[in-house]
Amino acid sequence: MDSMLSLEKVTHYFGGLKAVSNFNLELPDGALYGLIGPNGAGKTTIFNLITGIYTPTEGSIKLMNESIIRKKPYQIVHMGIARTFQNLRIFGSLSVLDNIRISRHYTVGKSKHTGNRKHKESSDLVQTNLFDSFFRTRNYLKAERQITDEAIDLLKLIKLDDVMHEQAKSLPYGKLRKLEIARALATHPSVLLLDEPAAGMNPAEIGELMDLIHFIRDNFKITILLIEHHMKVVMGICEYIKVIDFGETIAEGKPVEVANNPRVIEAYLGKEEGKCS
């Protein structure tokens, strides 16, 4: 099978509100898919379901054929799914470098959930426990150095190394968005979920972001699912797009197909005219 992430008949209720209804998704390995829909359509909720923040009322979610339902969010991260947030959730008073180093954290804990991951390079990290850190054993220092070096390498790649010692909250908005993506990447995911990464960016930054997403996909060989309101971004980089409204899938297909679908135009593009030019 080729499917990296698959959602089948996923339905989720908030009390009486059906936020996601019978949602299906087959995300092939290495794909770059888009998920769009008007405000309140249920997009973020789908991300929250995939990352284990909510448990779906019905349906199944599988990562490389293994069910991830009822797993804790951190376990799902260990299995290889990382995400960013619509409203930034940065570790504001820590340094940029520390934001990244935290993501590399779990590899030094004794996690049982790293077996299924595609990118194995992190599993040869030295493992340490609390005892090691209390006594600063050699073993521990080695692991720390490894974490730091990897984090710095990643920051160089993303071109945030010039600000790595700054306090994260002092960064401009565009860089914060980038930092959040880098932080997600640092967990070595197989699947990356991006929730409106272009929100609040100016056109120049949006151009950079599109390059970055392409770069990540090609360089890290990661499967990406993207929520975005900026049509330029979605139409420009996604290979395949799903459109939802009121939790229901109303259209899907290649960008051109979706853009010309009358239901989509009615439900979404029509209303969002201001944003999509």
Partner: peptide
């Protein structure tokens, strides 16, 4: 240490901490 940073990340943003793999 890395464990200390895990603690700090809980203070900074608990949900984000869990979602970068920290067993909060």
């Amino acid at each position: 240490s890395t464990h200390g940073r895990a603690l700090l990340s809980i203070r900074e943003n608990e949900l984000a901490s869990e979602l970068v793999g920290v067993n909060t």
